[in-house]
Design a binder for these strands. Structure first.
Lengths: 161, 161
DNA sequence: CACAATTCAGTTGTCTGCAATTGAATTGTC
DNA sequence: GACAATTCAATTGCAGACAACTGAATTGTG
C-alpha cells in the first residue's frame, strides 16, 4: 500500500494557507493600482466601504465589521482624517467611544468608488456565481479557523497551568 | 425590471477580497498559536518550508517560490539567521547573490515541523479533497489577478504618457 | 575591450496587523 | 455611594509587505 510520505506534508504547494496568502497579496496588487486614483490603500478602502454602508460608527463597531482592533484602526483612521475623508469625535453619551463620521469629501468619494468592484471583478476573471461560491467557501473556512484558534489557545493555556 | 442597485456593489459582504483577507488573517491566528512552539512566525515558516524542500537557495530563488522580494526577505532572513536556523553566504560564483543555507539546527527543526500541516488541516475542518479544490481555485485566482495587475499598471503608465 | 543595461541584495520609508499595556470612562454589585 | 470589573481607544513594539532607491557585480553589445 502506498501512503503519502510524511515528508510530502511539508511541500509548499500542498499548503492551503500559501495559496490563500498568495491570492490575498495578489488582490492587494490589483487594488493598489485601482485605488491609487482614489488616494486610498486597500484597508482604508475597506473602512470606507463600511462607513458608506452603515453610516457613522464608533471605532469598536468598525472593528467588528472588519475584524480589526484599535491597534490597526487608530493609526489608519488618523490617516483618513488627515486626508479629510473622515472626522473622529469623542461620543458625548459615552466618552470612551470615538465616533467615526464621514466628511462631505468622504461621502463624495463614494461616487468614484462605485466603479471599483466592477473593475476588480473583471480582474478576477470569475463570474458572479463563481465568486459567490468561493466567498461562501472562504467564510466557512474563516469560521472554522477562528473556532480552532480559540481551542488551540485554550489548550495552550491549559498546558501552562 | 429589477437590477441590482449600483450601491449594492459596494456592500462589504459582496467583496471577495474581504473574505479572502479575513480567511488569510484567520489562518495567521491559527499558525501563530501552533508555530509558537517552534519559535517561527508564519512567513518564516514558509521560508523554512522552501528550504527544507529545495535545500540551499539564493535569496532570489527563495523569493520566486514565495512571491516575495528582497525588501521583505532581507530582514526576515536576518531574523532567521539571528535565531540560528540559517546562514547567509555571499556566493563565490556570483558575488551579487546570497546563498541561504540551513544550519544543523534549522535542518533539525524540520522534524518538529512535520506535525504542523496535520494540525492546520484539522483546524480547517476541510477534508483533503476540499482543500485541493480550494487551492486550485485560489491559484487560478492569483494567476488572473497577477495578469490583471500587470495590465492595469501598463494602462496606467500609458495614460501618463 | 568598453560601456550601457540588467541583475541582485540591501536599505529606507510607509502602511498594515496584532499582542500587550495604559488610562479614562462606565457598569455591576454589594 | 463605593469600588471592583469591564469596556473602549490609544499607544508601543515587533514583524510583514511593498515601492523606490542604492550600490555592487555581471552580462550583452558593439
Amino acid at each position: 500500500m502506498t501512503t503519502t510520505p510524511t515528508a510530502d506534508w511539508l511541500r509548499l504547494d500542498q499548503q492551503i494557507c500559501f495559496s490563500l496568502n498568495a491570492a490575498s497579496r495578489a488582490f492587494g496588487g490589483v487594488y493598489r493600482v485601482i485605488l491609487k486614483d482614489l488616494g486610498l490603500t486597500y484597508p482604508q478602502y475597506l473602512v470606507m466601504l463600511v462607513l458608506w454602508e452603515h453610516g457613522d460608527l464608533p471605532v469598536k463597531k468598525l472593528g467588528e465589521h472588519l475584524r480589526l482592533d484599535s491597534g490597526t484602526l487608530s493609526p489608519l483612521l488618523k490617516r483618513l482624517e488627515a486626508g479629510g475623508l473622515v472626522r473622529r469625535e469623542r461620543s458625548a453619551r459615552d466618552e470612551r467611544s470615538v465616533e467615526v463620521r464621514l466628511t462631505g469629501e468622504g461621502d463624495a468619494l463614494r461616487e468614484r468608488a462605485l466603479q471599483v468592484p466592477r473593475r476588480i471583478a473583471a480582474a478576477t476573471g470569475f463570474d458572479v456565481e463563481e465568486i459567490r461560491e468561493l466567498r461562501a467557501r472562504l467564510d466557512q473556512l474563516t469560521t472554522a479557523l477562528d473556532t480552532a484558534a480559540r481551542t488551540e489557545a485554550e489548550s495552550a493555556t491549559a498546558r501552562q497551568r
